[in-house]
Amino acid sequence: MKALAFAAGLMTASAALAETPVLTVYAPDYFTSEWGPGPAIETGFEAQCGCDLQFKPGDLLPRLLLEGQQTDADAVIGLNTDVTKQARESGLFAPHGQDTSDLTLPIAWTDEVFLPFNYGHTAFIYNTERMADAPASFDALLNAPDDLKIVIQDPRSSISGLALVLWVKAVYGDKAEEAWTKLAPKILTVTKGWSESYGLFTDGEADMVLSYTTSPAYHIIAEEDRTKKAAIFPEGHYFMVELAAKIAGTDQPELADAFMAYILSEEFQTMIATGNWSFPAKLDSSKWPEGFKELNLPEKALYYSEDEAAALRDEAVEEWRRALSQ
């Protein structure tokens, strides 16, 4: 291990010779890969900051909590509302200092620590070539014949899976477990993450997949394929927002502030739609890319604040587990 540390020490030492200030931003793996929005953000921000923006991908919050005050991060991007309570209580974050009164989210945003950069809603995606009429409401889905097969993600290992459990809770409240019991025979299987589910759906194994209202935009824009659609339910869809935040103990506070401002800039916001396949948090819908304007949007966004979600989470997951274990 010593030789390893030595060799690595040499590598980092040579990197430190450069004088440009470095802004270290922790982000989820999908965000920083060459197919995510990371590279474009890096180019865009570096053109104006005179700095070196370095993304460090991985499990955001677990890593931050492990590192505590010694973290190298100056900012983070890609947090989710389901973990903000835990993140806030760690005391590692500073206010973002941005004006959030004119965001274009379907809900009002007043959080001073976590700054939204894009959003979407949970939705079931179907293929119009294989299913002409998708269920027109959540109730219709629950009462659909059992040969309609859906794939979902596990709420214990996946953010979208957890959002689904909260969605069902928001629609059915005390009757959530009953709803799950009705849905259970239609659930072909439950996967660890979103990718496995979506792969099963595109392979034709399932009729519908739990994904996002923005998923069809990828197929429209990248593949000119208009057969993938989100089934819109009048009961409402669970709102999912992705967030950025500034680390309180950063040694680059000005750069971190500049990065927060950049996130809400029009340059960032026009790029994020096709970069991360989500709706921009601060961009009028007239400026959305063409494919996004075609998307079916829910009339109603359902949303639990982080305190409500934290209070409901364990019970809602347990209801899900009980109903699907029978």
Binding site: D154, S157, A184, I187, L188, T189, V190, T191, K192, G193, E196, W320, R321, L324, S325
Partner: peptide, 11 residues
């Protein structure tokens, strides 16, 4: 991941 996917759910 395999056990969960092929197992069909939280069982």
């Amino acid at each position: 991941a395999i056990a969960l996917t092929l197992g069909g759910g939280p069982k």
